[in-house]
Write a protein that binds this DNA or RNA. Structure first.
Lengths: 339, 339
DNA sequence: TTGCCTAATGTAAGCGCTTACACTTGACTA
DNA sequence: TAGTCAAGTGTAAGCGCTTACATTAGGCAA
């Protein structure tokens, strides 16, 4: 990597403005401690030189970076995009920069990324979901790293936590489905290892079935990766089984869209031949035909609230609180009566 | 922001391993200059302490950060997600971290973000498109910042550049459309100010029409923001005009999907009543009914190649070359004969 | 006038790291 | 045997910045 040789330094500015480096520094950090005439002169030079403070020097000296990190499973998925965008916007309003890294749903990589972001100077972190190895939590604990867990809310969590209860959400949509008279339920879920959102949703389905007195024997599950094609393939798999399920619940809208697309190709009519539901309520849900009945997740609010909480923690605010958000079921056309 | 007080330092490691700080440092940076027994001892302590090198110190001392920044118009859009994901993966393979910032299509904010990323220590940058104010280029020039422009390829660019020629692409799909006998063409484009991709695509349409001897009077244009709803509204607007266009070309697949969705709602049959085309070939294109005829953009290849080029530049490799990628037209169902 | 206080600014230490240079040791060559 | 060299390690300077503390100057009360 090459040198950033030509970058002007605080020294350069100080020399040209005929003040000490301390004064220049104060112009940035505590402007009201510098008399206006001096400040103007300094800022003029700053402009002229195109001076930008050197981040490394700054963090070293002040032991803070105004940077937080977020580690998300993948960038390439609409599921996270909206929430992260809101998270970032809120941080930006507070002059905090966001570093984004992705783990590819791999806890080991997540751990590395956490270390990497911390050594990059991140003051705090945003993490998705609760499920991660103890050693990761140990590290966070030992290094006293402020962090917020989002995308899932758990009553009993030891972490600061903003999100919705995926288990309740799973139950809620299942109850809705049961109202339509469905008995044979199939679930296409994302892999549940180290993905507590997926796992909790699935357990929510089980909860609801149990409390309605429906045997687990009526529940069929395929777990797969999050892609249109996986959703489509899993759908086809279910449709070749006998007896067919009457409803196919999908772990997110991407899987559900894949399923419906395949249904259309196979000439299977949704919801007349089989119902399909999604989860998330991303744009896709209103694009696919028939439109998806799904769980509406308040992504933007989640991102914004997470940012606020993390900022509060970092600013040492007292009694910071975890926050549970509510979800709603959005009834569209892909869920119909059991036949 | 709070202190990271409890982080162990190089010193701590050195003391516990009974070596100098230089040796510990070498274990990380030039491991083959340290004899194995020493290295093992050091790494053991590193593990035990959960030591992570302090980024600030590191950048200060070495004047490099192994970090590059990317400024994209928005995170919340599938258009960029795939390419950026590939970009990031390639960097990660080379132990380079990616910082992502978003500009919201605003050149002023882009400039700020560039400054911010640079002061964060980014060694180089990825920028989307060529269109930005001179002062931004001046800054990049003056500070000698290595950068790669992507998502558009221009023969005459002064910048390192990986992408496809949006103008040619615009022509190419227009020619395809003309083969289907279309004469009255409507375009729904993103705003073209400081968006050279959109502008070039539009100019490509004009080029193709001109060389086929079709008057500009047969071209209607609406420029709008990139969202499903904007696409839908613009579509409806066009459909109420007389005479109606026979084909609606959309600046990207999101707009096109919005258009088709609205068509379905209005009972307008695509492609029998009107044809619709997109641009990008994201997942959406195969989900919407009818499936989209669109321009396939090699997003992943673009991201990967951009990363490689940027890394080469940063490593001071000689004769780095800009790279033009080819696009292809994907014929699906949304384009039919003019009626 | 003297003494005290405050506001503005300067001085200089040191944040954690890399690296040029110096030193030590042991092996090899002439 | 002395001389040369390379490998492994240590010493210490200094990267750009913040900030505790020191200094200066001017205003005001006694």
């Amino acid at each position: 990597m090459n040198k950033r040789s030509s970058a002007p330094t605080l020294q350069d500015v100080a020399r040209m403005a005929k003040v000490s480096t301390a004064t220049v520094s104060r112009c940035f950090n505590t402007p009201d401690k510098v008399i206006e005439t001096t400040r103007d002169r300094v800022l003029e030079i700053v402009e002229e030189l195109g001076y930008t403070p050197h981040f490394g020097g700054r963090t070293l000296a002040s032991n803070r970076s105004n940077t937080v990190g977020a580690i998300i499973p993948t960038i390439d998925n609409a599921i996270f995009a909206r929430g992260i965008q809101a998270f970032q916007e809120t941080l930006a309003q507070n002059n905090v920069t966001l570093l984004i890294a992705s783990s590819g749903y791999d806890p080991e990589r997540e751990f590395q990324q956490i270390r990497s972001l911390i050594s990059q100077g991140a003051d705090g972190l945003l993490l998705i979901g609760h499920a991660r190895p103890i050693k990761t939590y140990d590290f966070l604990q030992r290094r006293q790293i402020p962090y917020v867990v989002t995308w899932n809310y758990r009553e009993d969590s030891n972490s600061f936590n903003v999100g919705f209860d995926n288990r309740k959400a799973g139950s809620k949509i299942t109850n809705e489905i049961l109202k339509f008279g469905h008995k044979r339920i199939a679930v296409i879920t994302g892999h549940t290892e180290f993905n507590d959102r997926a796992l909790d949703r699935l357990n929510g389905v089980r909860d609801a079935m149990k409390s309605s007195g429906i045997s687990e024997l009526n529940l069929a599950i395929i777990s797969t990766t999050y892609s249109l094609k996986s959703g489509a393939d899993a759908f086809e798999d279910f449709m070749t089984r006998k007896p067919r399920p009457t409803v196919i619940m999908c772990g997110n809208d991407v899987l559900a869209t894949g399923a419906i697309t395949r249904a259309n190709e196979m000439g299977i009519k949704v919801p007349y031949d089989v119902s399909v539901t999604g989860f998330d309520d991303i744009d896709l849900a209103e694009v696919v035909q028939p439109k998806l009945t799904t769980v509406h997740v308040p992504h933007r609010r989640m991102g914004k609230s997470s940012a606020k909480l993390l900022l509060d923690i970092l600013n040492g605010k007292q009694d910071c609180q975890s926050l549970e958000l509510e979800i709603e079921i959005v009834l569209r056309q892909s869920l119909g009566n059991a036949f």
